[in-house]
Design a protein around this nucleic acid. Structure first.
Length: 272
DNA sequence: ACGAATGTTGCGGG
DNA sequence: ACCCGCAACATTCG
């Protein structure tokens, strides 16, 4: 579930708590196979033991634990949670990794659907190759967006979901940003004129910033810390509201499937 | 009760 | 190049 605002919320929460902690050991209490993307638990343990966390940052939807040497990365995928609080007993079966620190605190990677992944690496070159621009960075400009849209002929929803172009948008914020800018999700990227591209640019930044200030969106699973939820759910205009009246024109919100994802839009005020 | 859907990503195929 | 379908998995909803 977590998209950029949710991942940023987790990073903001954990950053002061994790800084300066030194890794003592790693445990995979339930023996999940696919959690570790770069080898076995034993090699992770060998590399990470004794390493200290200098800071936490975010890149796209990845959480970066910057170590004194190298990096430990988490991707939450659909249901991942990263928490220093101990999960309830009945939730321990969902813990896909446990990191014990030398101060005897423990970081839990809790993940119901087990899609979440953990990476170790010496540098971030592979990640930079994989991911596009940060939508909240100063490199992301209205001209950058307009030019990129016109380099490709993609349905705009596909374009915005593609992490190789813009890193961090997901299903919720794409639907919301397209609604806000009055662009139909099936509009072709190269047919969007400068005016509408600028509107999309402003909508993306506005939605992401606002969602971060509300600690993200909780539909079902997103939580950070012990049990805190994201409050942007109440600010959603169309996502998850099929048949509800469009807040702008009262026409009923349509839900179709695009990219195998539920896609919400107003057929009247979102144009091709 | 059972099939479909859930906020993600990666792959193969047309 | 680009879109589709499916897979990974557990739970909830209609």
């Amino acid at each position: 579930m977590p998209e950029l605002p949710e991942v940023q919320t987790v990073v903001n929460y954990l950053q002061p708590l994790l800084r300066d902690k030194t890794i003592d050991s790693l445990i995979n209490p339930n023996g999940y196979k696919n959690v570790f993307e770069n080898g076995q638990l034993s090699s992770y343990l060998f590399i990470l033991k004794g390493k200290t966390i200098t800071s936490l940052t975010r890149r796209g939807k990845y959480i970066l634990l910057n170590l004194d040497i190298g990096y430990l990365l988490f991707h939450l995928r659909m249901t991942g949670r990263l928490m220093l609080e101990t999960p309830d007993i009945e939730d321990m079966k969902y813990v896909s990794c446990q990191i014990n620190f030398t101060d005897s605190s423990t970081l839990f990677f809790h993940d119901i659907r087990k899609f979440g992944r953990i990476y170790i690496c010496n540098n971030l070159n592979w990640l930079e190759r994989k991911l596009g621009i940060e939508p909240l960075s100063k490199e992301f400009t209205s001209n950058w967006l307009y030019n990129k849209l016109h380099c490709h002929k993609r349905l705009i929803k596909y374009f915005l979901l593609d992490q190789q172009f813009i890193a961090g948008l997901g299903n919720i914020y794409v639907d919301e940003a397209l609604w806000l800018s009055g662009i139909h999700p099936k509009a072709y990227s190269n047919k969007i004129n400068k005016n509408r591209s600028d509107k999309l640019y402003n909508s993306i930044k506005h939605i992401l910033n606002k969602a971060i200030s509300f600690q993200g969106t909780t539909i079902i699973n997103f939580k950070y810390g012990q049990n805190n939820i994201g409050n942007f759910s109440d600010e959603l205009q169309i996502f998850g509201k099929p048949n509800a009246p469009c807040p702008r024109c009262n026409s009923p919100i349509i839900k179709h499937y695009l990219a195998q994802r539920g896609t919400h839009f107003c057929n009247k005020c979102q144009k091709y």
